[in-house]
Design a protein around this nucleic acid. Structure first.
Lengths: 339, 339
DNA sequence: TTCCTTTGCGCAAACGATTGCACAGCGTCA
DNA sequence: TGACGCTGTGCAATCGTTTGCGCAAAGGAA
C-alpha cells in the first residue's frame, strides 16, 4: 500500500488567524517573560493546541543569537568508556534543553570537514572528546570562533574550557590502596605517552609511591587504551620481571587485557598472585568475570559541569575560560589482594 | 585573561558585494547544477574563500523542503551492541551528507517530549532504535508525520520502514553448528519475551532443530539483554538440568553472563563441558577471555541500508515502505566444541 | 477634565538564505 | 535584417520566526 505522508506545517500566521490576533502576539505567548495579556495568551494557546502548533526551531534560531544545538565531537568508539561518557553527556544536555548534534571524525576521512558541517548549523558550543581526536580536528574546533569545552585533554591555548578527571588524584588513590595492602613491586600501564591523561595518571601514581618511599618497578605506554594493548603489555612486562605483584592501568579496557593475559596465558591467579587496578569504572568492571577494582571517572559530574559551562558561555559578555578537575573515586572490588 | 569570541558572520550579501554580483549569483554558485557562468563562479568562489564564507544551513533549510538533519532516537545504552550500531550509523550518515541529531529517551522522564523537540528542528527522518524504547515513544515517532526507519522491531502499521537482522536465519545458523558438532541437549536464552527479535531468534533456532529431528531442552526469557540476566539464567537453567551441553543466547552480553556463571560459579569448562553461542558480535566477543562464537549482526550493512532508505524518502512522490531483513553471519571462535 | 504612565498589541523590518520570473545579450538561421 | 532560442543575471518574494517602535486604550493622579 503506497501512502504519502503529507504534513501541512502550521505557522504563527495560522495560529494568529484562528486566535484573531497578530503574529507578534503568538510569538510573545511562546516567549517566556514577554508582555501578553491573560486573555490573548489563553486564546493563542487554545488555538495553538487545536492546530498542533509548535514553533519552528530553525526559523527561531535565525533571528536569535543561539540555536540550542550543541555539537559533540568524537573520534572512534575504541574504548568502552566513550559511549558511557557520551550517554551521560547527551542525557544532561537534554535536561538542559539542548539538542546534541553528533560529529564523528573518521580517522580515514577528512578530520575537519564534518566539524565545518556542524558549524554550518550555527551550533552554540562544541563539546570535544579531545582524547580520541586527531590534532587537526582539535585545532579546527579551537579556531572555529565558537565556545569550546574540551574533555580529557589539556591544550596549549587559554581560550577554551578544559574539564578532566583529577588524574593525579587517581594515580595516588591507586598507589595508596596497593601499598596499604602490602604490595611490593608495582607497575604502570599507560595508554598513549603523548596524551595528558596517561601521563598524569602515571605521575600521580609514581609521586604517591615516592611519598611512601617506594619505587616503580616498571612502566609501559602502549599507544592506546585498548584491550589488545593491555594484553600484550602484561605479557611483555611479566616476561621481564616476574615478581611484579601490582599493576595500575590507565583504563579499564587495558586492565581487562592485562587480567586475561595474566590468567589465561600465564596461569596466575588474580588477586592472589597479582593485583590489578583499572581506571574509568565502565559497567563491565562490575561483571563477576572481572570484578575490577578501579578508579571511577564520575561521568555524571563531568556532564553536569559541562552543562554549567554551556550556560555560562550562553550569556553574552566578557568571558573567562576555566580548567576544571573533577575528583575521582576509588571503587573496591576483587582484583586487589587486601590486607 | 578574559577573552571574548567575536565572530562576524559573513553572509551571501557580503560575498556578493565583494564579488560584484547579486546575492542570487552567490547562492547559485553554491547550488550544484544551477546556471552560473564560469567567470562569475570563479569570482564568487574567490570572494567566498577570502571571507571564509559558508552557507548558513539553518537559513537554507528554511526555504527548502529538507534540513539534512536525521534524528536518531534511542533509549538507554544498556547493551554494548547499541553504541556499536550507533557508531556505524552516524558514520554512514556523515558519509551521506546528513547530520545526526541525537534523541535519548530517558526511562525516568517524558517519553515523547524529547522527540517533539527534535521535530521542532524539522528533521528529515527519524531513525528509531526501537528495541530499547518505550511503546509511547515509538508511537509518537510513527504519528509524527515524518518518515520513520525502525531498527530491530517490527510494528503494527505499514507506513514505516522496518529493518532488522534475519533472526530466523541467525537461529538456524546457531542450531546448525551445534548439531553438526554433535551437541545433544540444547537451550535457548532469550531477552524480553515480548520483543520480536528475541522471539524470532528462538523460533529460528527451534525450527532448525526440528528439521534436524532434535528437540529443545530448555528455553528462558530473561526480560533484558544484560549480562546479569544471562548470569542468572545460566545458573537456574543448569540447576534444573545438568546435561545441557549447548546454549544459544539472543545477545552477546547474555552470552558473557552465561559463560562467567558457568565457569566461575559452576566450575565448568567452555567449550569442553558446555558450548555457548552469542548474537551481535560486539568487539568484546573477540577478546581472548571470551572468544565467543557468535552470530554477527552486520551493522555496516544495516547502516548502509538505512542511508539508502533515507535517500528514498527524500525525493517527493508516492512512497512505499519496506520491511528488510539483513542476513546474519556465523563467526566461529572458541566457545563451541567442534567435531 | 487634563495629563501622564502603564500595558498590550500590531506593523514592519530583520535573520540568511533560495528561486520563479522577467529580461538583456548574443549567436544562429532563414 | 528580423525572428528565435539560449544563457546568465538580477529583482523581489518567500520560508517562519522575533523584536524595536509607535500608538491606542485604560487607569490614576492632580
Amino acid at each position: 500500500m503506497a501512502r504519502v505522508k503529507n504534513v501541512i506545517r502550521v505557522t504563527v500566521g495560522d495560529v494568529a488567524k484562528l486566535a484573531g490576533v497578530s503574529r507578534s502576539a503568538v510569538s510573545r505567548t511562546f516567549t517566556p517573560g514577554a508582555p501578553v495579556s491573560a486573555g490573548t495568551r489563553e486564546r493563542v494557546l487554545s488555538a495553538a493546541k487545536e492546530l498542533g502548533y509548535r514553533p519552528n526551531a530553525l526559523a527561531r534560531s535565525l533571528t536569535q543569537s543561539h540555536t540550542n544545538i550543541v555539537a559533540i565531537v568524537m573520534g572512534e568508539f575504541d574504548n568502552p568508556f566513550q559511549p558511557w561518557m557520551f550517554d551521560a553527556l547527551t542525557r544532561h544536555l537534554h535536561r538542559g534543553g539542548k539538542m546534541p548534534m553528533l560529529v564523528t571524525v573518521d580517522l580515514a576521512g577528512d578530520p575537519v570537514e564534518p566539524i565545518y558541517r556542524a558549524l554550518d548549523f550555527r551550533v552554540d558550543v562544541l563539546v570535544v572528546a579531545a582524547g580520541s581526536l586527531p590534532d587537526e580536528s582539535v585545532a579546527a574546533c579551537i579556531e572555529s570562533g565558537v565556545p569550546v569545552i574540551m574533555l580529557g585533554r589539556s591544550v596549549e591555548t587559554d581560550i577554551v574550557d578544559v574539564v578532566l578527571s583529577d588524574n593525579h588524584m587517581a594515580g595516588a588513590q591507586a598507589a595508596t590502596i596497593l601499598i596499604n595492602s602490602g604490595h611490593k613491586s608495582l607497575a604502570y600501564v599507560g595508554g598513549s605517552e603523548g596524551r595528558l591523561a596517561s601521563k598524569e595518571r602515571g605521575e600521580g601514581f609514581v609521586l604517591a609511591l615516592d611519598n611512601m618511599g617506594v619505587g616503580l618497578t616498571q612502566k609501559v605506554f602502549c599507544g592506546s587504551y585498548s584491550y589488545q594493548a593491555g594484553y600484550e603489555a602484561a605479557l611483555s612486562m611479566l616476561a621481564l620481571d616476574k615478581k611484579i605483584d601490582g599493576i595500575f592501568c590507565a583504563s579499564d579496557s587495558l586492565a581487562f587485557g592485562v587480567m586475561d593475559a595474566v590468567r589465561d596465558h600465564l596461569g596466575l591467579k588474580i588477586p592472589h598472585d597479582l593485583s590489578v587496578i583499572g581506571m574509568d569504572d565502565v559497567p563491565m568492571s562490575s561483571w563477576p568475570g572481572y570484578g575490577l577494582t578501579t578508579i571511577r571517572q564520575p561521568v555524571n559530574k563531568i556532564a553536569e559541569f559541562v552543562l554549567e559551562r554551556i550556560d555560562y558561555w550562553s550569556v553574552p559578555g566578557e568571558k573567562q575560560p576555566v580548567l576544571q578537575r573533577i575528583p575521582t573515586e576509588l571503587i573496591v572490588r576483587n582484583s586487589v589482594r587486601l590486607g
